[in-house]
Simulated assay, not measured.
Amino acid sequence: MNQLNRSRRVLPIVAMAMTSLMVAHAHGAPEAFPSRPITVIVPYTPGGSVDTVARLVTAQLQKQLGQPIVIENKPGASGMIGSEQVARAKPDGYTLLLHASSQVYLPLVNANAKYDALKDFTPVARIGTVPLLIVTATTSPLNSLKDMQTQAQANKNSLTWATSGYGTSSHLVEEMLNRDLKLGMQIVAYRGAAPQLTDVMAGHVSAAASPMPGAYPYVASGKLKAIAVTSASRIAKLPDVPTVAESGVKGFEFSSWYGVWGPAGLPANIANQLASEINKATHAPEVTKVFETMMFQPADTSPQDLAKVQQDEHDKISQLAKEANIVIK
């Protein structure tokens, strides 16, 4: 009799539990994130600074999340093709964009932009910041910005800039140096930092401004010559390379920064979870060790931090684009 009573008490409990599971299933109970592979779009060719940072950070992130992270390089239109793909993706956290600060600049200077950097994406996390190097071929007679200024003004159209794409930090620095030093150098656009720097090495283009992660390995190996750095002070890895400010442009300072975005409408809980994991990844010893060689400063970040940074950059570059009349059609 006792056994029968116990059975009668247990059966309703089991039935309620099964009913709860069925109701949860019917209403689509949320699954743990992530439960499948994540795709990270890098809107440039392999081998450049954005790609280098992306592969380093996502390798660590993959270990933490326990799911594969697949990098897809989608170069073209100075990075806008890859960004447009993410803007159209489902906002579920499984398609992300890893891009440089030019993600914010491009729609401000390119008349053909099909997205709004502030409205069509969800900020997730800022990865960090890094200065740019002004580099030339090792065989180039240009050993300083003063040399560049002297030759450019003495022989009009004799020098050219290579940029990783119109509207990128590389392009903006070159436009600013053209303006501030009255260089008048033509700017030649490439589909990323790797082909940009390859042509500088070969002497097909006179010089380039390029973020440290992509440019420094070539300088360290003797394949490129650094003649200036865009940071406020000289960098430890290249103590003999002067800043742009020391080279004749008083007060000049410019850094490139890197971030992760999702499509607009990405749920806040997923954005916050990804930001937390990205923070852990960028401060992991094996990642910071490589970052140090690039002079890359990781950020302690959140979706709110990235939102503020991109708004500030948006306002600053809007003004610069107007002053320098930077319009890409």
Rank of each mutant, 00 (worst) to 15 (best):
R88M: 09
R88E: 11
R88Y: 00
R88H: 08
A89G: 12
K90S: 13
P91F: 01
D92N: 05
D92L: 07
G93P: 01
G93R: 00
Y94R: 07
T95M: 12
T95R: 08
L98I: 05
L98R: 00
H99G: 10
H99L: 11
H99F: 13
H99I: 08
S101A: 09
S101Y: 06
S102C: 13
V104Q: 11
V104W: 12
V104S: 13
Y105E: 12
Y105W: 14
Y105S: 11
L106D: 10
L108M: 07
L108A: 03
N110K: 10
N110E: 08
A111I: 12
A111S: 13
A111D: 12
N112D: 12
K114D: 08
K114A: 09
A117H: 07
K119D: 13
K119L: 10
D120T: 03
T122K: 00
P123E: 02
P123D: 02
V124E: 00
V124D: 02
A125E: 03
R126T: 07
R126L: 10
I127N: 06
G128E: 01
G128T: 03
G128F: 01
T129E: 15
T129I: 06
P131Y: 14
P131V: 03
P131I: 04
P131T: 02
L133I: 01
L133A: 05
L133E: 01
L133G: 02
L133H: 05
I134L: 15
V135M: 10
V135Q: 06
A137N: 05
A137D: 02
T138K: 14
T138R: 15
T138H: 15
S140W: 08
S140G: 05
P141N: 04
L142E: 00
N143T: 05
N143F: 09
N143R: 15
S144N: 08
L145K: 06
L145Q: 06
K146S: 14
K146N: 14
D147V: 06
D147M: 10
M148I: 07
Q149S: 11
Q149E: 14
T150Q: 15
T150I: 13
Q151K: 15
A154V: 13
A154F: 11
A154Y: 06
K156G: 09
K156V: 10
N157Q: 13
S158F: 10
L159F: 08
L159I: 09
L159H: 09
W161Q: 06
S164W: 04
G165T: 00
Y166L: 14
G167V: 13
G167Q: 01
G167A: 06
T168Q: 07
T168W: 00
S170H: 08
S170G: 10
S170T: 01
H171A: 10
L172R: 00
L172S: 04
V173N: 04
V173I: 06
E175V: 12
L177D: 08
L177M: 10
N178E: 07
R179W: 14
R179F: 14
R179T: 13
R179Q: 14
D180K: 15
L181M: 09
L181P: 01
K182P: 01
K182E: 05
L183S: 03
G184V: 03
M185K: 08
I187S: 15
V188G: 03
A189M: 11
Y190E: 12
P195L: 02
Q196A: 08
